[in-house]
Every structure is written in C-alpha cells, then in structure tokens.
C-alpha cells in the first residue's frame, strides 16, 4: 500500500519541480515537447496558466515533500486522485487548449480585418465619396460634406442615410477619433480626394505603415490630428513631409515616440508652413515639485 503511493507522490513532486523550470525549458526546447510525452506538457500548461494553477500545485508540493520524508501517513488518496485527474485531463488535452487559445487569438485579429472591409457595392452605386462616408460612419466616426452639417451616428451606432443624395458633393472633413481603422480601412479614406481636415485621434490600429499612405491626400489635406495613437512613432511621422499643404498638425500624446520634444522640432523643420501641436515643453517647467522627476524622465527613451 505504501510503496505505490510513494511513487505517485514522487511523480507529483517531479511535476512541481519541473513546472518551475518548465517555462524556461519550454522556451529553449519547445520542439522536444512532442517526444517527452504528455507529462511535461501538463507541466508547461501549469506554468503558463496564471495564479490559479499555482494554487492547484501548492498542496501537492506540501504533501509530496512530506511523503518523501515518510511523514505522509495521513494523506487522503482521493484528494490526490482528484488533482491527478485534473492534471491528467489537462495533459490529455494539451494541444486542444493550445489550439483553442491560438484560435481565439486569430479571431481577435480577424475581427479588426472584418471591420475594415470596404463596401464595394456602395462605391459602385454611389461613388467613392458616399462609400468613404458610409465606411467612416459605420466605424463610429463623423463626416462633413462641403457646405453641409456634420453627420454623426448616435450612441447606438445608427445614422440617417440622407447623405446618400450628396453624390457630387465632396467630403471635406472626417473625424475618425477612436475608430478601429487599419491599413486596409484607409483605402476608403484615401478615396476622399478633397479631404481638408482629418482627425485620427486615438485610433488603436493606426500605425506607421498607414502614415506612409497619406501622401495621396497631399494636395488637399490642411489639418491632421494624430494625437493619442498608441502605435505611431517618429518613423511614421517622417513620411508626413509629403503633405506640403498642411497648416496644422497635432502630434501630442504619442506614447511610441521615443523623443517627443526632439521629434516635434524635427517635424517643424520638415514642415515649415505648418503649426505643429505637440507636448508643450514650457508647461512641464511649471509643474509642481512632486511631478518633476516624472517629467525629466520623459525625454529619455525607455
């Protein structure tokens, strides 16, 4: 009776021991996984799951150390059994869990792509201006046709379709703040050849690749706001030199820019006729003493 339990306990001790190492082992020899059998796979799962699994492992650890020292006389075998079955279950379904997580990741990406699909049937029927406006409104942004009022969706995302009559009227301004626009989605925007003002504040999927496409609006664009976009860096801002008609550019609050002050100066040099709004340096000097260390740290790239 005692002997088999010791064996069982030892293997769970191994489990714990290995799960500590598993994270690093997995990274270095992931390929070995398949050959090492299901046990190591379970260990990896344990180590990769957050705290919950740690709680699951700790009791085993205590019990098994006792078991090894021969003190574990009063261990309830059923409890151990339960843990074992859960581990067994996880190890049996290791690849299923991995596949599921990978699938979820893919779905997340797919969603952004789906939101950025163009509406070719609308473009065919009503022309590029209406199609572009429709796309922006669908995304939750607002558009302004020339000499017309701003069209905005309400809180529930509905908007009136009156603008479908404005076929010959070009879109003059777009406010796409907070929209999920990405590289593909820009296609619809770039068709608006007479766009003068564009606000892309806080767009989470807008990156440097997108900025390199704005050159096709170079003739019309006068106002551009990129404030708060988390993925835009100085590398993308460098392409804005194509936009020679730009009068106002807002590049404040871009977390991915490594040297906001220097970048602003360089952008100003690059676009001499443009008013560049960025992080205000003078403001930082007036801050209270408790905020000062933070401010001095900001120009140094992280």
């Amino acid at each position: 009776m005692a002997a088999p339990r010791t064996v069982g306990d030892r293997s769970s001790w191994n489990l714990q021991n290995r799960s500590l190492l598993a994270a690093s082992a997995f990274r270095t020899s992931l390929g070995d996984q398949a050959s090492k059998g299901p046990r190591l796979q379970a260990q990896f799962l344990l180590s990769s799951l957050p705290n919950k699994s740690l709680r699951l492992v700790v009791p085993i650890w205590n019990r098994s150390t006792r078991g090894i020292r021969g003190l574990g006389g009063a261990v309830a075998p059923e409890g151990n059994q339960k843990k074992r079955t859960l581990l067994q279950f996880l190890s049996d379904h290791f690849y299923d869990v991995m596949a599921l997580r990978e699938f979820l990741l893919r779905m997340q990406m797919l969603k952004v792509h789906q939101k950025n699909r163009a509406f070719p049937h609308i473009e065919e029927k009503h022309g590029p201006y209406i199609a572009g406006a429709f796309f922006i409104l669908k995304q939750g942004g607002a558009v302004k046709f020339r000499d017309k009022e701003w069209v905005r969706p309400n809180e529930r995302g509905h908007f009136s379709l009156e603008f479908l009559q404005f076929q010959a009227v070009p879109v003059e301004a777009v406010d796409a703040s907070g929209c999920n626009i990405n590289y593909e989605g820009l296609n619809s925007l770039l068709a608006l050849k007479e766009l003068r003002s564009l606000s892309l504040r806080c767009c989470p999927h807008l990156d440097d690749w997108c900025l390199s496409r704005l050159h096709s609006l170079a003739n019309s664009l006068e106002e551009l706001s990129l404030a708060g976009c988390p993925r835009i860096s100085e590398r993308g801002l460098a392409c804005l030199h194509h936009l020679q008609n730009l009068r106002r550019l807002d590049i404040s609050d871009l977390p991915a820019v490594s040297n906001p002050g220097l970048t602003q100066i360089l952008v100003e040099e690059m676009l001499p006729n443009c008013e560049v709004v960025g992080t205000n340096w003078a403001e930082g000097l007036k801050l209270g003493p408790e905020e000062q260390p933070q401010d001095t740290a900001s120009p140094v790239p992280a």
């Binding site: 990406m109 590289y183 440097d208 690749w209 590398r235 993308g236 460098a238 392409c239």
Partner: peptide, 24 residues
Amino acid sequence: LRNINEHLAVVDAPPLDLQFNPSG
C-alpha cells in the same frame, strides 16, 4: 512585414516591434 504580428503571433508573447521606417 506589415502584418508581421499576425503571421508571427505567438500566444502569450509580446508583439514584435519591427521599427519599420517607411521613408522610401
């Protein structure tokens, strides 16, 4: 490369920062 974080996505790994300079 544009979609590198979709092609080379690994569960639980941080996204890649390709540092692409689209300067031509």
